[in-house]
Amino acid sequence: MNSDRAITRGSNAVGVPPVGAPSADVVAAIRGVSKVYSLGGHQVKALDNVSIDFRQGDFVAIMGSSGSGKSTLLNVLGCLDRPTAGQYYLAGQDVAVMDDETLSRVRGRYLGFIFQSYNLIQQLSVVENIEVPLSYQRPPMPGGRERCLKLAELVGLSGRLGHRPTELSGGQQQRVAIARALVNNPHVILADEPTGNLDTATSHDIMNLLDALNQAGRTIVMVTHENDIAERARRIVRLRDGRIESVADVRPALLSTR
């Protein structure tokens, strides 16, 4: 815990506030989160006492060698996994103690997901894929269909609304996934190696899109192992053996009051 603090302070990042509910402009915060896997008697600490705050308009790249805990951290942030210890505040609530159903609702309401392999549903068209998160909103979100069409336009796929995922290129599929991640107006967008399956040119297109979204005030947390991709973020968090090794600012934080 102490060493974590020292590093974050040393790298001149956002300081860790005292334990308790985070301040208003922090959309997501993990405090002293550990994740321990028991494998055949001995224990693996995938995350070891990790604390980070994500402010509104933040764009964080998580880096680290294989097995350092990147996926585990993203899963915890995505409410797909519960930490063994510690708190996770999302939209002002501690989600670490929520049950499965509430966690599902939290995911649907506050989070947007972008995956390395796009993860579109094959039997649905472009616009229907974008619509999927809306079908799990309780209460239902009004004006859903128009919102989907607008987002399809935003990611440049207005001409392909009726196409199936298999009829699209990798870059186009990832654009659909980005539109889908935006449709519920999430507090945080979580991206797991979003350019991992794409060539360099397409990767830069996608990063431009994410950049534009961040400029518009979206909070993005992205796992990547490519330095040039990570450079596009505002901060780079490096993990090693489940601990935060360093937090480095790339660009100044977006000055947004929203």
Binding site: S104, Q122, Q137, R180, N184
Partner: peptide, 16 residues
């Protein structure tokens, strides 16, 4: 299985 994982991530409860 993959579709189920996607839907769960996007907010579907077990009941849904």
């Amino acid at each position: 299985t993959r579709e189920i994982g996607i839907r769960r991530a996007l907010g579907a409860t077990k009941g849904e």
